[in-house]
Amino acid sequence: MRQKSILGLFIGLITIDFIYQAKSVPRSNQKIVATDYAVAAGGPATNAAVAFSYWNRAKLTGVIGSHSLRNLIVADLETYQVIIEDLNPTQLEPPPVSSIIVTETTGERAVVSINAVKTQVTRDRIPEDILQGVDIVLIDGHQMAVGSAIAQQAKANHIPVVIDGGSWKPGFETVLPFVDYAVCSANFHPPGCKNTTEVFAYLTDIGIPHIAITQGENPIQYHVNGKYNSIAVPEVKAVDTLGAGDIFHGAFCHYILQASFPDALAAAARIAASSCEFFGTRRWMQQ
């Protein structure tokens, strides 16, 4: 049953994803026929918001605009009762589109996409009541000016801030001082960092109290209270790995409001692993 009093705010990239399942990725100048397909709203913050909505209420803040592709995004998000805060509803530019091919036998995905580089907005677009009723904030770094401003507000209001550190993006340094939980991938490399040891040191020096680095099917490494440890990731037969990290972050935001940092990481890992057993980014919610 949903705990409808809990509200999460998710800030960042909103795309439309066209997802195909196929026996293989096409070679140059080859046409292939997909064995399955799905259309869904996408992006790290978007998929995390949808995952969070499985248990709670979620608000997604980013840019969709007025292009006709908006209808596909809005219809999908409304299905999962995600509240949309469009920061530039009159934008004529189409929202970012991602084309994804998932290999049938391995669950690995190939992605062609564009990020939010053409849909950036400034902090003056943020509604004054953006944090009203919010219990947790997640920032994926694709709307950095907005994310930085909201992170500062959240910190001042004692609302926990999580970052999805999928990769380093310029401007993250303006967000990190206000972060409570840095949940990063192995591809997150701040300036001067070449390995996980250096990443942990960088984030610890900033003062972030809870840090985790995911490594796909390998154990999650984390640092809390001055100690390092790791958590095993459940083994599954992967059908589709698309969005697993995003789903992990959405689940983490749910569990961290009721459990310790290690327990929330472990619970989120179970949800993310389970999602890989289903094609697309939504079907795991229908089991």
Rank of each mutant, 00 (worst) to 15 (best):
L7V: 02
V162P: 07
S24H: 14
E198S: 15
R270Q: 15
K237I: 15
A238E: 12
V233Y: 05
A264L: 14
A22G: 12
H67S: 14
Y54E: 12
N56I: 05
V199L: 13
P160T: 08
Y222H: 03
P262G: 05
A51E: 14
G192T: 05
G280E: 08
Y80Q: 10
K169C: 07
A75P: 02
A268Y: 01
W55P: 13
T105R: 12
S28M: 07
F172D: 05
K194T: 14
V236Q: 03
A41C: 12
A49N: 06
D124A: 03
G8M: 00
V183N: 03
V161A: 09
Q132W: 09
N157E: 12
C184Y: 00
Q287M: 13
E85A: 00
L87E: 02
S53Q: 02
V183R: 02
A266I: 03
I139P: 02
A51Q: 06
I163A: 01
I130A: 04
Q221W: 04
L72M: 07
P127V: 14
R123P: 12
I32K: 10
T119I: 01
D36I: 00
A34T: 11
Q286D: 15
W168G: 11
Y54L: 11
S148G: 06
P209G: 12
T106G: 11
I163T: 05
K59I: 02
A40G: 03
N29F: 08
I14Y: 06
P94I: 05
T196N: 15
V82L: 13
V112H: 06
I6M: 04
F200I: 05
V224L: 09
C193R: 10
V137F: 01
W284M: 10
A75C: 09
V199W: 07
H67W: 10
D129F: 01
V233I: 15
I73G: 12
Q30H: 05
T35Q: 08
L60D: 06
L60F: 04
Y202D: 01
K118E: 07
A38D: 14
L9W: 00
N29I: 06
I208S: 10
A268K: 03
F10R: 04
T196Y: 05
Q287T: 14
N229F: 03
S28R: 13
C193T: 13
T106M: 08
Y228D: 15
I220L: 02
P127W: 06
D205S: 10
V183S: 08
V224Q: 15
A22W: 04
A58T: 12
H210W: 02
A269Q: 09
H189D: 12
Q143R: 08
A267V: 08
L13S: 09
G216A: 05
I84Q: 03
W168L: 00
G166W: 07
P89T: 10
G12T: 11
F10E: 01
E85P: 04
E78F: 12
T174E: 06
A51G: 09
D240V: 06
I100S: 00
G226Q: 13
C193A: 14
A116G: 10
H142D: 00
Y228W: 09
V175I: 15
P26T: 09
A259M: 14
C253P: 09
S99K: 13
A182G: 04
G12S: 13
P262L: 03
P177W: 07
S53F: 03
E85T: 05
W284F: 15
L176F: 03
P190F: 01
Y228I: 14
P262N: 11
W284E: 06
G62Q: 11
L7Q: 13
G107C: 01
A38R: 08
L60S: 07
K227L: 11
G133M: 09
